[in-house]
Design a protein around this nucleic acid. Structure first.
Lengths: 354, 354
DNA sequence: CTATAAAGTATAAACGTTTATACTTTTGAG
DNA sequence: CTCAAAAGTATAAACGTTTATACTTTATAG
C-alpha cells in the first residue's frame, strides 16, 4: 500500500491518497485474503454471501487489481502484441478491430506497434515490442521482412501468428485468405459477362498475394480458352492505376474489362478510362480487390473482392492463444474471399469506335 | 528462475528450458546483482569494464528483463492506452503512428483499444482498458461520449489527454487543431480566386470540429461581404456528398465553389457535379478537408486542408507524460492546419449555360 | 604512504498478487 | 447428534525486479 500525491481540482493543494490494494478489500469485507483472491479469479469455492461482500467492497473502494503484481505471480502478461505498417486500410482496420475484440473476450489487452514501411524494410521493425518480455504472444500483420521476423521471434521463443504472409512456404503458423480463389472468382465473373479482352493490373510481384491473385486470373482465363489482354505490375495506389491505364490507351491496348489487384488501382484505372470518354460499366468493366470503404460509395459502386477481416482476426487470436496454452499440432488457416458484384461490371457490349 | 516446457522442432519431444533471470546474468558476468541492475537502468556509476561484462552476458543468454517484475518494483506499467473508434482514416493513421513513435522514444509501449462507434455511443467504450490498472495513462482520440469518458477517467484518477475533443469547454487537457482557422483559410482561398457563390457541406453539427469549420467559413465570407450560397449538414462520406450536391443541382442551386467538411464529402460532390457535365476546376472549384491519401492521387488532385498529425501525436504524448510525472499547470494545445492548394480549385470564370 | 573519493559489494525490504499447504469452521445428510 | 464434505482461514513462499543502507575495495591526489 503505497501513497501517491494528487491535486484537488479546486484548490491545487497537494493531498495524499492511499492506493488501495487487496488488503484494503480484506479489511473492508471482513473475509480472508485468499477468499478475496478467489473472488477476483472466479474460483467457484466461495460462498455467495462472501462473494457479495467482496464485490461490494471492491465497488465501494473502486479497487482495481495491480496488473504488474498479477502478471508477476501468474507468469503471464495478458498482453498480445500486434505489429503492422499502416492502419489506413479497410482490411487492416477490420482485422485490428476483430483482433482487439476477440482478445478482450479472452482477457487480453492489445499492444500495438506500428512501424513505417521504411523502418520495416530496414529490419528495424518492432524492435521495441521484442525487447522486454512484455507480451505473451505476437500477431504479425503482413510483414515485409518476414524471414527476419520469424527468425527473431523463434529465437526469442515468443509465440506468434502471421496474418497475410508473403513467403511461399513459411513454416510459421499463418492465417491467410485464398488469393488464388479471389483472382479466379473475379476473372470468372468477367468471363461470365462475356468479356474476352481482360487486363490485369496489380502491385509488386514480390508480394505472394499479388502472385496468387494473378495465378487465379491466369487459371480462369486458361480454363475458358481466353488469352490475357495484358498483365501489368506497378505499385499499389490510385496514381499507379491511372498511369498504367493511360499507357495502355496510348498504346492502343483496349481491354473491355480490367481486374485490378486492389481497389485503389481500380479507381485509377477508372479515372484514366473516363478521362478518355469511356463510360463504366457500359464501355469497360472494372473489378477491384479489398472492398475499401470508398468502393461502395463511389459512382458507380465498385465491384470488388472482399476479405473476411472479422474471421481473419478471430482465427489469428484463436491460433495464438492455443499456441500460448502450449497446444501442439495447430495448423494454419486459409479463408475464402467473397466476390461483391456491384455496378462497375456489366455484360460485354461491342463498343463503337470513338 | 522458473522452468517452462518447450518442444524441439524436430522431434516434438518435451524438453525443459530454464527461463533466465537477472541472477543468471549475475552468475555469468561475475558482478553483483546491484551492478547488473544498474547497467540495465543506465545508472552511471558502473565501471566500463563491468558494464561490458554485463552486456556480454545479457547478449549471450539473450536475457530480457521481466517486465512484470519491473513494473511492480517501479510502480509503473510503461503502457499508455490509446482509445479510438476507427483506424481507417489518414488523420487517425498519422496520429497513431506519431503517438507510437514518441511513446517508444520515451520507453513506453502503446496499448490500443478500438471500439465500434455503436459501442462507444452506448458508453461501453474501452471498458477493458479502464478495468485493471494496466496503463499509466490514456490518450483518447476523438471521443464520441466525451463527458462520460472524462468523468470515468477522473474518477479512476488515470492521467489522460484528449485529442480532437468535441465539447466546447471540456476541462480536460486536450490537443486540438484550429478548425476555425481551417475553415477560414479554405474559404478565403476560394474568395481570393474570385468566387462569390460558395457552398458549404459538412458533417453532423454535434461535432465541435464541424461547427468550428463552419464558423471559419461564415467569418471569411462576412469579412468579404459575400453571402453564403448554401450550407448543408449531412453525414460524412462520399455518398452523402453526392446526394447533397445532387439535391442542389436539381433545385437549381449552383455554387461556383464548394468547401466540403472532409475529403470524402468533397469526392461525392465532385462525382455529382461531374455527372452533370461540370468540369473541375474549370466549372466549379472544390476544396476538401483532412488530406486523405486519395486526395493527392485522384484526378484532378484535391485541394484540401491538412491537419498536422505528427505534431498532434507528439504533443499528446508530451502532455500526457508531463501529467504522469506529476507536473501541474499544463495547458491544452491548439495547432494550426495547413491549406494544400492542388488542382480542384481555380479562378472563377463565368460559365456558359449548358 | 595516507587520505579520500569513486565504484563496488552484500543484504534486505518492498512492490501486490497468486497459490500451495495445513488447519478450522460451517453445512447438511443420515 | 455425528460425521463427512464443503468452504473457510491463516501462513508463507514465490514471482523478478528496484532501491536503500551500510560496508568494502580500488584508484588517485597529495
Amino acid at each position: 500500500m503505497s501513497d501517491f500525491i494528487n491535486e484537488t481540482a479546486e484548490t491545487g493543494r497537494l493531498i495524499t491518497i492511499k492506493k488501495i490494494s487487496i488488503l484494503d478489500i480484506v479489511e473492508k469485507s471482513g473475509v480472508s485474503l485468499v477468499t478475496v483472491s478467489r473472488v477476483l479469479n472466479n474460483v467457484p469455492t466461495v460462498r455467495e454471501e462472501n462473494r457479495q461482500k467482496v464485490l461490494q467492497a471492491i465497488k465501494e473502494l473502486d479497487y482495481r487489481p495491480n496488473s504488474a503484481a498479477r502478471s508477476l505471480a501468474r507468469g503471464t502478461t495478458g498482453l498480445i502484441g500486434l505489429t503492422l505498417i499502416t492502419l489506413n486500410d479497410t482490411v487492416f482496420d477490420g482485422i485490428v478491430h476483430s483482433v482487439n475484440e476477440h482478445l478482450e473476450e479472452n482477457g487480453y489487452l492489445l499492444a500495438l506497434s506500428v512501424s513505417s514501411p521504411k523502418e520495416e524494410e530496414a529490419g528495424k521493425q518492432n524492435s521495441f515490442l521484442f525487447q522486454e518480455d512484455r507480451v505473451d504472444g505476437i500477431i504479425v500483420l503482413s510483414p515485409l521482412n518476414e524471414k527476419q521476423v520469424i527468425l527473431e521471434l523463434k529465437r526469442k521463443k515468443i509465440p506468434f501468428v502471421i496474418i497475410d504472409n508473403h513467403l511461399e512456404s513459411s513454416k510459421a503458423l499463418t492465417v491467410n485468405v485464398d488469393n488464388y480463389a479471389g483472382g479466379y472468382k473475379a476473372t470468372k465473373h468477367l468471363l461470365d459477362l462475356g468479356h474476352t479482352h481482360i487486363a490485369h493490373v496489380s502491385g509488386p510481384e514480390h508480394f505472394l498475394s499479388v502472385r496468387e491473385r494473378k495465378r487465379g486470373f491466369a487459371e480462369a482465363l486458361e480454363q475458358a480458352g481466353v488469352a490475357p489482354c495484358i498483365v501489368a505490375h506497378t505499385d499499389f495506389g490510385i496514381r499507379c492505376g491511372y498511369e498504367i491505364a493511360m499507357g495502355w490507351i496510348q498504346q492502343g491496348i483496349l481491354p473491355t474489362a480490367v481486374f485490378a489487384g486492389d481497389d485503389a488501382l481500380a479507381l485509377g484505372v477508372m479515372d484514366a478510362f473516363r478521362a478518355h470518354g469511356y463510360r463504366i460499366p457500359d464501355d469497360i468493366s472494372i473489378i477491384g480487390y479489398d472492398d475499401q470503404v470508398f468502393a461502395s460509395e463511389i459512382h458507380p459502386q465498385l465491384t470488388t473482392v472482399r476479405q473476411p477481416t472479422e474471421q481473419m482476426g478471430k482465427e489469428a487470436v484463436r491460433l495464438l492463444l492455443k499456441l500460448i496454452e502450449g497446444s501442439k499440432r495447430n495448423s494454419s488457416v486459409l479463408l475464402q474471399p467473397e466476390l461483391l458484384i456491384r455496378q462497375t461490371t456489366a455484360n460485354y457490349k461491342h463498343r463503337e469506335k470513338q
